[in-house]
Amino acid sequence: MSAKVEFAVEMSSPSCADKIQDRLIQNGISKSDIHISYETGIVTIATDQPSSLILNSIEKTGMKAVLKGYGSTTFDKNLGAAVAMLGGSTGYSKLGINGVVRFVQINNNECIVDGTIDGLSPGKHGIHIYECGDLSNGCDRIGDHLNLNQTSHGNQTDGPNFRHTGDLGNITANEDGRAIFYFKDKLINVSHLIGRSVGITENEDDCGKTKINTSDIDGNSGKKIACGIIARSSGLFENNKKICACDGVTLWEERDVPLAGPSRQRKI
């Protein structure tokens, strides 16, 4: 296991811990990789599974859960954690597409890319890091593929001289339009991604292999249909905030209220 995920879980009694553990074991996580504290309401899991799947399995117990921190199993220090929301107030997307992509640096050479995106057309879509985080015109001002080594377009699995830094290949949406992906990348590092964007394209990326049209630039992957700024997020045990100081909205209420606006107003 290379990553550790921290969840806050709304546990009403000590027996909740057993329920959560049983559910996680059913989902293939071994007991030794699970740590549950009823006192703090924190569940940490060492895993190589997408965080959305783990969150879902915790919530199948009927308890609310929120991802609080993401880090490495081998380093206590936060080596870099970031998140991009596609759509919403920190991203842009065509109607119906929304998702979250997380980036976690687990050691100096490997970054986990962990995402779930809904509302896509079934099949393959290119995924890239773009050099800007400018959403002033939807996804049209986020620049080119991040290309720190001045190379041609390629695939995520290609060597550093045969791909752009931001070339992450394709993700595949199922019949319901959902793409869940989880992989490690040796070229990107969270410290180079902050303030830039991640984008999803309309078409499959040919990863520079067809050599026709714009294959060596963008893999003929077409227009960007969703993008989001890569923002700093919390490492493990870094954010113990449970209530929003300005309006009293709690950890458990946040998901049911908008990010800003009159419906949050319950000033303390």
Partner: peptide, 28 residues
């Protein structure tokens, strides 16, 4: 802690401006 500024009316995340300056083309 927060300056008693009340609830939030708008949010956003700070990103690198387009067009990019030469520094941001490199690893930094």
């Amino acid at each position: 802690t927060t300056g008693h500024a009340g609830s939030r009316v708008a949010c956003g995340v700070i990103g690198i401006l387009d067009p990019i300056t030469p520094w941001d083309k490199s690893a930094g």
